[in-house]
Design a binder for these strands. Structure first.
Lengths: 352, 352
DNA sequence: ACGTTTGGGCCAAACGTTTGGGTTACTATG
DNA sequence: CATAGTAACCCAAACGTTTGGCCCAAACGT
């Protein structure tokens, strides 16, 4: 099985074996579809392909990349790889990439400017063909610099300026959330708004507030608090809201994990979620439906966002330009806002 | 600033600019530490480094890889990138990799043999120097084949056969869980054991059962049920346990997400978690402490597992061999087993 | 019969790097 | 004063691919 010579299987090897020239083999195996036909007769082409398959030939990306200047690599930058939302988006990116024979490299930036610049440099040093940013900021000098340098990239999930992006329609999502809560009769509503530099939180909040205004419901400024996008941040924010002067009857968190944190804070205050306090999240994480008290959320096609982002990048890499896309979110009402505790009434009784 | 010629900054460019030979520049900039000294005088070395820095020279990995046969890339295979546990391990891998100037490429395998073979082929076609598998199976023909082919790899989180691995000491973790529940007075205990092909679930379960046996507590076979590692799986498994003939007073799930599913099932059955039914998980996911009812769990240094796995791979790539490592887990008792609703999220002390 | 096209290949250069050997010009040594 | 030693470089050959040209023979058109 294993040859004693252990000769690596390269184009030249195949060519020598068949008495052909390496360029002929190259065109048949890796050439562009139009050049493939006139490179060799159907017969020789078959012999080449057969031997290549038998030997398990795989083109060496170093050789190819050196010659073409392309690497077939794209970099994906996200705040954290352990953030479920971004991880799911990344899965979409990677899936679409694999379909195109391109490989993704991901890097975590912690939403921190120096590390993200550093990580981007590393990716560029690897000669990636393009980038997907999942951590764009509303005001993002770095992205502007990159664009000026001619680096090709698209934004996923968060938008920034006029850079091409694929995001949920967050303003609409915010409105859906507001409508849901106001339809339930709430008038004292509050928002856990996420980080101010992220378009996601900002747009969701803006949409929510706009709808409230249209319905004549006043949301005092101190009922909109910023937070990190994780449970700890959500808990702290909810704590502030519940201890403040305008204790709300309903809280909209722009992120499911922040909402889960709010759930904990509610429990600490002896409030029954769904009955005493409505809480809803955003993104419809798989966890949301499975929580002991299922969480109302706004579903966003995260996987699809990733896919589209990569497809858009692929278009850019072909030299064409692309339009930003907004994907439509959907409300998923559940027990955490309905007051319906489900099959039993005991859910909140632990706090008694 | 930007040259009109737009000449890419390469070794040759720097060499020409300085009137030196490209090999001299190479040795100074990228050469091994010992060769670096005798390559050029301290003075020329400085000139080289200064110009390189000024031009922002970055070695082209295609050229280097072509010559050396090394790519500085390692592949990381995990069941899913959106699984928090594996994502965290991956963060550890990537962190340690970045420190060594090596880049990771990750791929999701869905715990499915054909896709994982396919993804591995793709990574190998990219000429990765080595691999980290986060999805090993107890009986894993594919890994044996790879090892026979001389592919360098290490296993993370799950072990398999004699292949070098970095895992938690899962048998010990299972014992810690059992001791905790038995110390609380439970005698009717059950296990949600995860997938049978994963060493994690199997070893945790085995450790748990061994401790029970030593303490004279009988666990009937139908009180050990398999499940997927996610919430839905945990919920279904708990459902079966609670509907079965030996309704347990305590459930040990080998994974936090499965435990969260069990929480939901408990609520559906009108059981108060912590009081009527004790539930505990494993891995001490950040979420565990922040849940409305904080979840008892067994903490595992996931990030560290990732780091060590990559370090071990680095050793292998240097041609040396390495011993498998087991990292020590720690119990984190919380309200979901104590019935005490207070002190949420506080890290428990490991008192005997 | 002769010029032209075309099918089927071959040729060679180039991409950027590494690395085992020179080749100088000094300097220290005996 | 040779001679060995060394510091500081230079040389050249790869590594595997791609791609614009080139070439030859056979087929074709007139």
């Amino acid at each position: 099985m294993a040859e004693p010579k252990e000769r690596p299987v390269t184009l030249r090897y195949i060519a020598d074996e068949l008495g052909l020239h390496v360029s002929t083999v190259s065109r048949v195996l890796n050439g562009r579809a139009d050049a493939r036909g006139r490179a060799a007769s159907g017969d020789t082409a078959d012999r080449i392909r057969r031997l290549a398959a038998e030997l398990g030939y795989q083109p060496d990306p170093h050789g190819a990349g050196l010659r073409t200047g392309r690497s077939g690599l794209v970099g994906v930058l996200v705040p954290r790889l352990s953030d479920l939302v971004l991880a799911t988006i990344y899965e979409g990116v990677d899936e679409a990439a694999a379909e195109r024979g391109i490989t993704t490299i991901t890097a975590g930036t912690l939403d921190d400017d120096p590390t993200r610049r550093h990580r981007t440099r590393m990716l560029l040093a690897r000669r990636v063909d393009g980038l997907v940013f999942g951590d764009a900021r509303l005001d993002d000098a770095f992205l502007d610099e990159l664009a000026a340098d001619g680096v090709r990239f698209v934004l996923a999930n968060r938008r920034s300026g006029e850079h091409p992006s694929v995001t949920p329609d967050d303003a609409l999502g915010g409105r859906l959330a507001a409508r849901h809560l106001l339809d339930l009769g709430h008038t004292r509503v509050a928002v856990i708004a996420g980080e101010p530099y992220a378009s996601t939180g900002a747009d969701r909040t803006a949409g929510f507030l706009a709808h409230c205004r249209e319905r004549g419901v006043d949301v005092p400024p101190d009922s909109v608090v910023h937070s990190s996008f994780d449970t700890a941040g959500g808990r702290a924010a909810a704590e502030r809201l519940l201890a403040g002067p305008h204790r709300p009857t309903a809280i909209f968190a722009v992120n499911d994990f922040a909402a889960i944190g709010a759930l904990g804070a509610a429990r600490d205050h002896g409030l029954r979620v769904g009955a005493d306090l409505a809480v809803m999240g955003y993104n419809d994480t798989p966890l949301a439906a499975e929580l002991p008290i299922p969480l109302t959320s706004v579903a966003v096609p995260m996987h699809e966002i990733g896919r589209r982002a990569l497809e858009m990048l692929a278009v850019l890499l072909r030299g064409r330009s692309a339009e930003s896309e907004r994907l439509t979110p959907e409300l998923r009402p559940r027990a955490s806002t309905s007051g319906d505790p489900g099959t039993t009434g005991r859910a909140g009784s632990l706090a008694d």
